[in-house]
Write a protein that binds this DNA or RNA. Structure first.
Length: 478
DNA sequence: CTGGGGACGGGGCCC
DNA sequence: CGGGCCCCGTCCCCA
């Protein structure tokens, strides 16, 4: 968030994505500009290849591979993709999701939609369906194993025996990922038997093209104007989640949320699942954010967190129009207009909007400065001031100080042998050396696992610093 | 550089 | 189970 960087500014248009989807959906319904027709057991669904490629990993692979075809041709003619392995209802629901960011299905059709989403590589829908079907099980809590000691034991094993679909592998540790990849390598000649010819007697779905195995002709646009028919019939079942993992790993920066990332899909996939299918959630805490992979604790807290990605601010001040992501923040904001400052100092006339402001203020009266710099021994009344002090060059800090992350939210120097008491009298500080080392090494060098996980938070759950031995994947989760 | 106020996001508790 | 409320940690900004 360096505002002056390159003089660039970002102006968000939160409604843009919704409007865009809405218009695309209108085009789809009227058949306008549709360049792809999906069929399922006789039902036909005109759609847009770009949209399908955006929402489905399957189509992304399918079209993406072809767009860089040797001839550089771009398809002009219509294409038909026969998806008999996805039921018409499920396909309809998935299309509806693709164009509205809302999944609307009956509970009875949940299983079919889940299977369709898995086959097409629509991860967030599959996740939502699994949540609703109560199949999250370990998965839902998997990410929270960092907070629950002892939960790590089953990490690598428990789900291996699952059947062909990798329902619980979303947050698979990389070790397991590698195992899976090895398996896939061995199977790849079969799995990648991409064939567009009808295989009428095989009602299964086939693997889509993969980057390392470009699809063979026919290609869309290979013969212009002619309808190409692609069948997802026959062949070895594709493993969409493994493909998803691969894709995420192939991203330059992992799954970094950005303003342009269409978070509304993931969010409304969650929200839509909840609202559209009724409140049937197994457990609400903890939940993993589908965008940043962060584990969110607390019942009902995920929608709140999701708004940090979407930028949605549904709570507006009727007085000044300022909008907030949270109702409680609006409530506090309203104190500005009402003049209410409920937190008053008993030692002076000072009054505050926030309880923690009063707390900070009280430390002035008490004269307590419990946060001491271990190097220059300067004391501060506030922990964040100590952190700022240590980030700066105000004291005779260790020369490696400049390597510290500049905006690590949990930053405190890991370099000096800080006694916990010297850092935080509350001892609730999150300045755990593990985390800090991880953050720092993230800045120092690319982790040996590469873009394993997008966010620093999730990252911290995977890797542990082992002193001189470098980075190691978490094993004991204690 | 420091002190102080405010904003923001996450977690806990409770209804 | 979802949401309200509160507290906390952290960051940003200003004087």
């Amino acid at each position: 968030m360096s505002p002056g960087e390159d003089g660039l500014i970002g102006i968000p248009f939160p409604e843009h994505s919704n409007e865009l989807l809405s218009r695309l959906n209108a085009q789809r319904r009227s058949g306008l500009l549709c360049d792809l027709t999906l069929t399922s057991r006789g039902a036909r669904y005109p759609t847009h290849r770009a949209v399908m490629a955006a929402v489905s990993l399957y189509f992304r692979r399918l079209f993406g591979a072809e767009e860089v075809g040797e001839a550089g041709e771009v398809s002009e003619g219509c294409s038909v993709c026969q998806l008999d392995c996805v039921t018409p209802d499920a396909l309809d629901a998935l299309l509806e999701f693709a164009y509205t960011a809302t999944l609307t299905i009956r509970s009875s059709g949940m299983r079919e939609v889940l299977e369709g989403a898995q086959l097409l590589g629509i991860q967030c829908v599959a996740d939502a369906c699994r949540h609703i079907l109560g199949e999250v099980g370990d998965t839902g809590d998997l990410g929270g194993e960092g907070g629950e000691p002892g939960g790590g034991g089953q990490l690598g094993v428990a789900n291996k025996e699952r059947a062909s679909h990798v329902e619980n592998d979303q947050k698979t540790p990389s070790r397991r990922k590698q195992d899976r990849r090895n398996v896939e390598k061995a199977a790849s000649p079969v799995r990648l038997a991409w064939n567009t010819r009808p295989q009428e007697d095989k009602p299964k779905c086939e693997a889509p093209p993969t980057p390392e195995h470009k699809p063979r002709p026919p290609k869309y646009g290979a013969s212009q104007g002619a309808q190409q028919v692609v069948l997802m019939n026959g062949g070895t079942p594709w493993d969409p989640q493994l493909a998803q993992e691969e894709e995420e790993e192939s991203k330059p920066e992992g799954l970094t949320p950005s303003p342009n990332h269409t978070p509304s899909q993931t969010e409304t996939a969650l929200g839509g699942a909840v609202e559209g299918v009724g409140k049937k959630r197994k457990s609400q805490a903890p939940q993993q954010c589908p965008v940043c992979q962060k584990i969110i604790h607390g019942a009902g807290k995920l929608p709140r967190h999701m708004r940090t990605h979407t930028g949605e601010k549904p709570f507006q001040c009727m007085t000044c129009g300022v909008r907030f992501t949270r109702n409680d923040k609006l409530k506090i904001h309203m104190r500005k207009h009402t003049g209410e400052r409920p937190y008053s100092c008993t030692s002076c006339p000072a009054r505050f909007l926030h309880s923690y402001d009063l707390k900070n203020h009280l430390s002035l009266h008490s004269g307590l400065r419990p946060y001491e710099c271990p190097l220059c021994h300067k004391a501060f009344a506030r922990e964040d001031h100590l952190q700022r002090h240590r980030k700066g060059l105000a004291c005779l800090e260790h020369p490696r100080l400049d390597l510290r992350p500049r905006h690590a939210r949990h930053a405190a120097s890991p370099h000096s042998p800080l006694s916990p008491a010297s850092l935080s009298p509350t001892s609730s500080s999150s300045t755990a050396p593990h985390f800090l080392f991880r953050q720092e090494a993230d800045n120092l060098a690319t982790p040996p696992h590469g873009p394993l996980i997008s966010g620093g938070m999730a990252y911290s759950r995977i890797l542990h610093w082992r002193g001189g031995t470098g980075w190691r994947e978490d094993e004991e989760e204690s």
